[in-house]
């Protein structure tokens, strides 16, 4: 078990064990937060993962300094997110704020914006069609080299593959901006 400071150091190094520990230790807290306030297990999982992703991304910025315990921070983010979800359903409940955390005023909006960009990209990739979708995912998600892609898709040379990739990228960009504007 890592203590908070060590855990943060390890998370910044993308240590998988540290991520597992972070996830497993704090889940029950958010599960009961959501389930005790008219949410389901699925919703608890979604909220929790958004909070974890948010925290993880914050940690990737060197200037981010945690001024409270990790547990307190995740609870505060989870609480804000869940209150916002409930408010969107015109449900207003009081969920106790255990310990106020500074700098989280806009966190729910920030996370929602990130989520909707994510969904726009996912939607755009879904509409893109083959072979574009796989070519772009191979390159940008799975970090295959252009040579590997050339061979995998049977292009005669790397130049052709590259041209195809940029054509696909242009198409994706167009659909992505359309999706995001919706």
């Amino acid at each position: 078990m890592y203590l908070d400071e060590a855990l943060i150091v390890e998370l910044r190094k993308n240590n998988q064990l540290a991520l597992k520990q972070l996830y497993k230790v704090n889940y029950p807290m958010i599960l009961s937060l959501v389930m005790n306030n008219s949410g389901t297990e699925q919703e608890a999982k979604d909220i929790y993962q958004e909070a974890i992703i948010h925290f993880y991304e914050k940690l990737q910025h060197a200037e981010f300094v945690l001024t409270c315990k990790i547990k307190t921070y995740l609870y505060a983010v989870g609480r804000k997110l869940w209150l916002q979800k409930l408010a969107q359903r015109s449900k207003f409940v009081r969920i106790e704020e255990v310990e106020p955390v500074a700098g989280l005023e806009d966190v729910a909006t920030e996370i929602e914006a990130r989520e909707s960009t994510f969904q726009a990209m996912e939607g755009a990739l879904g509409k893109l069609g083959e072979p574009c979708k796989t070519i772009l995912e191979d390159f940008y998600l799975r970090s295959l080299t252009m040579d590997q892609i050339t061979e995998k898709f049977g292009y005669t040379n790397a130049g052709n593959a590259k041209n195809q990739k940029y054509k696909c990228l242009q198409r994706l960009k167009k659909i992505f901006f359309e999706e995001r504007a919706r």
């Binding site: 998988q16 991520l19 996830y23 993962q49 992703i53 990130r114 960009t117 990209m121 940008y140």
Partner: peptide, 17 residues
């Protein structure tokens, strides 16, 4: 930037699941 963030998040989400 959106594509890059998408890629990072996609992998993180799969990992978390």
């Amino acid at each position: 930037k959106s594509l890059q963030e998408y890629s990072i998040q996609k992998q993180l989400r799969e990992n978390l699941d």
